[in-house]
């Protein structure tokens, strides 16, 4: 393949602590993710999958190895530039919704735009568009606290979409939802991938969710032990 991967891990290592107490969360993980792919990072808790996601999302620095973003070595990104790249490139969906409970749904959704310094009127328009996409336009004025779990996760997805990122990181997106609601949220995510070509990186221990992705990366004890490609892809 001659395409440049949108995201590439090159021998990522991450250790915590020093000396006898040191713990290696990642022990040399390498893989490539291409534009428009859906990738599941699967593993038991403590396997290092969350650490991997944090390193990939540039929230954490690897002890050694590099993360390449569209062929650029991200180690050179620092401070303001790094913040801007993170703001423009990534969207986040977390298991705990991390919504500001007393703020309105619209304010929650437009948070990435506020951080980016987008003018108020444009924030509003783009926020409403993202909410409409997730059929939540009528809830824009409600407080985030007053929504059901499924609605909250849809708000979170709207927030992840609002800055039109190239990659969405989803950390156990259905972990806090019942199976019916979880299935709806899954459908929304895969539909987004199909319709907008957005790259999806899902961290999960749910095998059925992982099976819907183009690729499964299985992490065990900080190492990539298995990589399976879905037959249909």
């Amino acid at each position: 393949m001659t395409r440049t991967p949108v995201l590439a891990a090159r021998d990522l290592r991450r250790s915590y602590g020093r000396g006898q107490n040191s713990f290696d969360a990642l022990r040399g993980v390498s893989f490539e993710i291409f534009e428009g792919e859906t990738v599941a990072i699967v593993g038991k808790s403590g396997s290092g999958k969350s650490t991997l996601m944090h390193v990939l999302a540039l929230m954490d620095e690897p002890t050694s190895g590099t993360v390449e973003l569209s062929g650029t070595d991200t180690r050179r990104l620092r401070g303001r530039v790094l913040n801007k790249v993170r703001n423009r490139t990534f969207g986040f969906v977390f298991q705990q919704f991390f919504l500001t409970p007393k703020a309105t749904v619209l304010d929650n959704v437009t948070l990435p735009l506020t951080i980016a310094g987008v003018p108020r009127s444009e924030r509003r328009a783009r926020g409403m568009a993202a909410l409409a996409q997730l059929e939540l336009a009528d809830k824009a004025r409600s407080k985030a606290n007053d929504l059901s779990g499924g609605q909250k996760q849809r708000v979170v997805i709207a927030r992840a979409l609002v800055n039109q990122p190239r990659i969405i990181f989803a950390d156990e997106p259905t972990g806090n939802l019942d199976s019916t609601t979880g299935a709806i949220v899954e459908d929304i995510l895969f539909q987004l991938n199909r319709e907008t070509g957005i790259t999806l990186v899902i961290v999960t221990h749910d095998e059925t969710l992982a099976a819907r992705c183009d690729r499964r990366l299985v992490i065990r004890d900080g190492e990539l032990v298995d990589e399976t490609r879905r037959a249909a892809a």
């Binding site: 929230m59 423009r88 948070l111």
Partner: peptide, 9 residues
Amino acid sequence: GLMKAMGLG
């Protein structure tokens, strides 16, 4: 943490 993850300096 969320705001910092989203790129707030």
